[in-house]
Amino acid sequence: MSNTRSRQREDIDRAYDIQTRAGVEGAVRGTGVGTGLAMIAHFSWPWFRRQTLPFKSFLVSISTIFGLVLGAERALLTHEAERRQEENALRRQARYDLARRGLIGTETEIAKWRAERDAALQAEQAKTE
């Protein structure tokens, strides 16, 4: 049970890191786009040139926040889709292996199969080192 929780904790931490990194990249990209558009509008549109600096900064910050949110959300959704595919493939393999043994692939049996598989992989890694 603690192995499952530690695996979940690692996955949550990895997802958080991915989301944070993508959010920062999106924010930087959004800031660049917002600043560039504000500069273009400032030099080409007299109405925009008359606007105050706080208003222009507000527009750039909206662009920054928009980039942060979209970047982080896109990265998280991609990560979740990849994890879902990996988990489905592993569960499919477990059900197939359990069926060959004559067992029904219940949640408990799949958890036992996963623990056996992890132990075998660790033993194999210990042998090679």
Rank of each mutant, 00 (worst) to 15 (best):
G67L: 06
G67F: 05
A81F: 05
E73A: 13
S61L: 14
V60E: 01
Q93C: 01
L76N: 11
L77E: 12
L90P: 00
E80K: 14
T78K: 14
A81K: 11
Q85V: 09
R95F: 00
R91H: 06
L98H: 02
Q51G: 13
S63F: 04
A94F: 01
V60K: 03
E87P: 00
L53V: 12
L103Y: 11
F66T: 13
E87W: 08
A94P: 01
A75E: 08
L70F: 10
R91W: 01
L98M: 05
Q51I: 04
L53H: 05
I62M: 14
L68D: 04
E80Q: 15
I62P: 00
D97P: 00
T52L: 06
E80H: 08
R100V: 09
I104V: 10
Q51W: 07
T106M: 02
L103G: 00
L76F: 10
R95T: 06
S63V: 03
K56I: 02
A72D: 02
L90T: 07
L68C: 12
E87K: 14
K56R: 09
G105Y: 04
L68R: 12
Q93Y: 06
Y96C: 06
A89E: 13
T78R: 14
F66D: 12
G102C: 02
L103P: 00
A75Y: 06
F58W: 08
